[in-house]
């Protein structure tokens, strides 16, 4: 059987959990790809805000570093840290730029077995809104299996607030075992 191809979406704030889940859940002979996407809207918004000032952006000032350069450096150091944590001898690293959710879906479009992504937002409770805008799109559209992990410790089942209306559950909730 051909080795599995696993793509790990490396994103700031939650990447450690994704890398750990990839290590724990897939055979060591799998093919691993670490993917980071720099959101182009952030650099565009930061770059272009000065246009609204009608050119009074401190002329002659050469910015110490362009936003794109800062973002590129950060992406490569993040990918290196992720590869380090993965500890796999043969890992592919992709650093892309664009609309994050579209690029991630594009990256897993051919021959990828599993995409590993993490939940976003407040991690002290289960839901609601544990998927950010990009993650929601990716889970919705990815043309492969998606492994959705809690980036660190999984909150207990009792962190879900009780329903506002309707009868109370007949049994007290059982202790929940998360199987990743």
């Amino acid at each position: 059987m051909a080795p599995m191809h696993i793509v790990v979406w490396v994103v700031e704030g939650t990447w450690q959990g994704c890398v750990d889940a990839a290590v724990q859940n897939f055979p060591a002979d799998s093919r691993f790809t670490l993917l980071h996407v720099t959101p182009s809207d952030v650099t565009e918004a930061a770059d272009a805000a000065s246009i609204g000032l009608f050119g009074r952006g401190f002329p002659g000032r050469k910015p110490n570093r362009r936003f794109d350069d800062i973002a590129d450096d950060e992406a490569s150091s993040l990918l290196a840290a992720a590869a380090d944590r993965l500890g796999h001898p043969d890992v592919e690293m992709l650093s892309w730029r664009g609309r994050v959710e579209r690029e991630v879906v594009r990256a897993v479009a051919g021959g990828v077995d599993v995409l590993v992504v993490a939940r976003d937002g407040d991690r002290s409770r289960l839901g609601p809104r544990s998927l950010g805008h990009a993650t929601r799109f990716i889970v919705d559209h990815a043309p492969c299996a998606v492994m959705l992990v809690w980036p660190d410790e999984t909150p207990g089942i009792d962190s879900i607030p009780p329903p506002k209306h309707g009868p109370k559950p007949p049994h007290p909730p059982h202790h929940h075992h998360e199987d990743r």
Binding site: G121, L131, G132, P151
Partner: peptide, 8 residues
């Protein structure tokens, strides 16, 4: 941005 205010 609740989803993006994540991690440490």
């Amino acid at each position: 941005f609740a989803g993006d205010l994540v991690g440490h």
